[in-house]
């Protein structure tokens, strides 16, 4: 396979347009590890260590950020995806943007799917099911891909007619949510509602760049939150997750991050996490999660150390093969 042509922007401008995303993406990636390898794996395998209970009692419950910060992490990543892809769509020719996006997103997802199927033969990966409760990571990847599809379709409109593009995306989301409500397909409805998170990220980028004024972006962002709330009202399955609480927290953190973090250089671990975040997320449920279970036979600490190393190595390989994820 050969990679599609690189975009014409120099590396410096790529860095600059990502300024502000480092902190949320890095924090979210760490929280993904904590939530899925820490909280979820331990609980699904009969462990309930004291520290996990303490964190839940003192942080997760009072703040309303459940799933061991899992959905907060997902919301931060989805908003970052919206922000980042919009930046790319606005600064690259349409065909280059679409090809590069497909190259970086689809093959790693396919590899992850194969890994998941393989591991399911003899281990216990997160199930390949279209169900938020069963596999929030896969579900969130589908949300990201759905947004990417919408963005590719509306990208030609963005530079001159961004409101038309965003309203068109929201119209598709609203229509899908409505259809899911009428047909009583909760998972489709939840997926549609979560697509609003990258749209919020998109609005954030448009606003930062001065294309969207506050009074234009704010009502659209509020509409996104309204769709999340409608989803909670429509589907019982969506009510336990407290999506709006984490989404609002994520937006505030994003606003803080994009305002405060304009540095071009960051510590190497942060750079590493950010540039490999997509691959880490893709591989978390199908590589790291089942490995922890497989190696648990040795001892849990060793299992975690080895799994984290293999997980990182897997992300590194995908990164080298498919290029930067952000």
């Amino acid at each position: 396979m050969s990679s599609p042509p690189e975009p014409t922007q120099p590396i410096a401008s790529v860095s600059a347009r990502h300024a502000g995303l480092h902190a949320p993406v890095a924090v979210a990636t760490v929280l993904i590890a904590y939530s899925f390898l820490g909280g979820l794996w331990l609980n699904r395998h009969g462990y309930s260590p004291e520290w996990l209970v303490v964190v839940r009692e003192w942080f997760n419950k009072p703040l309303g950020l459940g799933e061991d910060f899992g959905f907060l992490a997902i919301a931060l990543l989805l908003m970052s995806v919206g922000h980042l892809l919009t930046a790319r769509a606005m600064t690259s020719p349409w065909a280059v943007f679409a090809k590069r996006l497909a190259w970086q997103a689809l093959p790693p997802a396919a590899i992850a799917a194969v890994l998941g199927l393989l591991f399911s033969l003899f281990a216990d990966p997160l199930p390949l099911a279209f169900d938020y409760q069963a596999n929030p990571l896969l579900f969130s990847l589908l949300v990201g891909l759905a947004f990417a599809g919408l963005l590719v379709l509306t990208a030609p409109l963005l530079p001159r007619q961004w409101p038309v593009a965003v309203v068109a995306q929201l119209a598709v989301v609203t229509f899908t949510l409505t259809v899911a409500g009428i047909a009583d397909v909760p998972q489709l409805g939840i997926l549609a509602a979560l697509v609003t998170l990258p749209i919020i990220g998109e609005l954030l980028w448009l606003s930062r760049k001065g294309l969207a004024r506050f009074w234009e972006a704010a009502p659209l962002a509020l509409f996104c939150f309204a769709l999340l709330m409608v989803c909670e009202h429509l589907f019982r399955e969506a009510r336990d997750w407290w999506f709006p609480v984490a989404a609002v927290s994520a937006l505030m953190l994003m606003l803080l991050a994009v305002r405060g973090d304009a540095r071009a250089e960051h510590p190497r671990p942060v750079e590493w996490l950010v540039s490999r975040s997509y691959y880490l997320v893709v591989l978390c449920g199908v590589l790291a999660y089942p490995l922890v279970g497989l190696l648990d036979l040795l001892s849990l600490p060793i299992s975690y150390v080895v799994s984290l190393l293999v997980w990182g190595l897997g992300a590194e390989l995908l990164h080298r093969w498919f290029g930067k994820s952000t």
């Binding site: 009072p62 703040l63 609480v245 609002v248 927290s249 505030m252 953190l253 606003l255 803080l256 305002r259």
Partner: peptide, 16 residues
Amino acid sequence: GGMVRTAFLAILLILV
């Protein structure tokens, strides 16, 4: 029952 959440979100709002 939402004191901590209210305080958390209000502090974030202030920072923004």
